[in-house]
Amino acid sequence: MVIDLERCMGCRACVVACKTENETPRGAFWMNVFRYENGEFPDVEQGFQPNPCHHCSEPSCVDVCPTTARFKREEDGIVLTDYDTCIGCRYCEVGCPYGVNYFSWRQPDEGQYGFDISAEQEGGSGESLADILRSHDEDYDGGAPWSDPDLDVEIEPRGTEMAGRPETGTMGKCTFCVHRQDSDDPELEDTTACEEVCPTNVIHFGDMDDPDSDPSQHLEEKRGTNRFRMLEGTGNQPNVVYLGDKPPEGVRNMEDRYKEPEEAIDAEATRRRGDWL
């Protein structure tokens, strides 16, 4: 993946696209975009840096995994989590220097748009949307309406679930949209949701070894531009190449005080409900 920082405006559309593509719960940003400031008034620089999983060639997260749930797929180098094997020890999260792992503290549905939080569970006063659906049709037993069955596919080489929303107690992170890579839809293959949504064409995904691929072409086009990888010193050999200036040390992050996910989910669960709504 090539990420062209000269064009990123920090809009975070990629962040949301990743969330709806992969149905991750509140607080999980498999794609995260830093917004930062540097310097003092009036000489202030601002920068934006998307930070997905770097799908390292020497992934420390794989090394520390006690179960082989986290592994690197040999054929294309995508680092995946086998949800069926993962025991939720969070070692990979601790062992990754990039801060891109998100543990499923809850069932994904619950954290999505406050969908499946029931009154009984959180001491809330109302039914959840899921309850409303359930009371409407007794055959219906859960699941968000936006839930995409394409995520339930079995992913090779193990034939287990590794795409999209991880279950409670397992670890999630960017999969390079593995379900797209493995699909037989040519419109989806070699694309990622974050790349597709980006309005300014910052993200270029594809086979970096193939000189004709989109990222290789883009690198070629911007030959003269500075390029770097994050935290090269850790020996992880990350596979995300950035174009543009490296964020200097000691920058200040800005506009990224997200609400504490649990607090938000609780709030959404216990929200007041007008009888007339």
Partner: peptide
């Protein structure tokens, strides 16, 4: 919806359920 959600389970009880293929 029902099928799609079978894998994700119903809130609260999922702790002991593992997803079946």
């Amino acid at each position: 919806l029902a099928v799609a959600s079978a894998g994700t389970g119903v809130a609260g009880t999922q702790y002991f359920t593992t997803s079946e293929a």
